[in-house]
């Protein structure tokens, strides 16, 4: 088990055990680096591939920070509703009804936090804030990558469709492009979509 156990922690305030459940290794690494700077925390990274419920049973954390896209989050979610979950202490989704902004930011960034219900209330918010900031940064990079990829593939689609159109209609590039632009304007759709449609329809014709 990673980190010292609660009993060995010196001082009057026991350390808060935080379990990070994130299967994205670089994001999990960055978040655990950030949180480890706080000496009042024991940061435990959940073993990749281990079901969340097993990780909670094994590491007995006070707080669990969970990547929302993890499908087994629902299992943690239901501990209170179901018997036989096999957990000594029930856990519950952390919710701050008075801080709507924080909650919305967390869910938008794709992270949520579960607390062990029977332990004394602790302030989860600074932890959650740190996690939100990090997740949002990763999300932005991801979106930029996706946008870049989409732009490239859009351009390839338009080029292919134009070439096919020029071949089929025996016209020049300018006329081909104008045809796609006109169709896009008439149907209130994007040129890459019109181009993709043209490609799929005419390729189908070829195979007949």
């Amino acid at each position: 088990m990673a980190g010292p156990s609660r009993a060995n922690t010196p001082g009057p305030v026991p350390a808060i055990r935080v379990l990070l459940a994130d299967e994205n290794p670089s994001r999990a690494g960055a978040l655990s680096d950030t949180l480890r700077a706080d000496s009042s925390l024991v940061v435990i990274a959940a073993d990749p591939g281990m079901p969340l419920m097993d990780a909670v049973r094994h590491h007995t954390p006070d707080i669990v920070l969970v990547d929302m896209s993890r499908a087994d989050r629902d299992a943690l979610d239901s501990v209170r509703a179901l018997s036989g979950a096999g957990l000594e202490h029930p856990v519950a989704l952390f919710v701050d009804e008075d801080d709507q902004q924080l909650m919305e930011a967390a869910f938008e960034a794709g992270i949520c936090s579960y607390n062990v219900v029977d332990t004394p209330p602790r302030d989860v918010k600074p932890l959650l804030r740190a996690a939100i900031a990090l997740y949002a940064r990763f999300q932005q990079t991801q979106n930029e990558l996706q946008a870049a990829r989409k732009t490239i593939s859009d351009r390839q689609t338009i080029d292919q469709a134009k070439r096919l159109f020029m071949q089929n209609e025996g016209c020049g590039e300018g006329e081909a492009y104008r045809w796609f632009r006109k169709r896009a304007m008439e149907t209130a759709r994007r040129i890459p979509d019109i181009a993709a449609e043209y490609l799929s329809r005419h390729r189908k014709d070829d195979t007949r």
Binding site: M68, S69, R73, D74, D77, Q100, F107, E108
Partner: peptide, 15 residues
């Protein structure tokens, strides 16, 4: 969405 919890939380927290 990956799970029903995500749907429910999305409806509550403006997702």
């Amino acid at each position: 969405s990956p799970s029903w919890a995500n749907i429910a939380d999305g409806l509550v927290w403006n997702g």
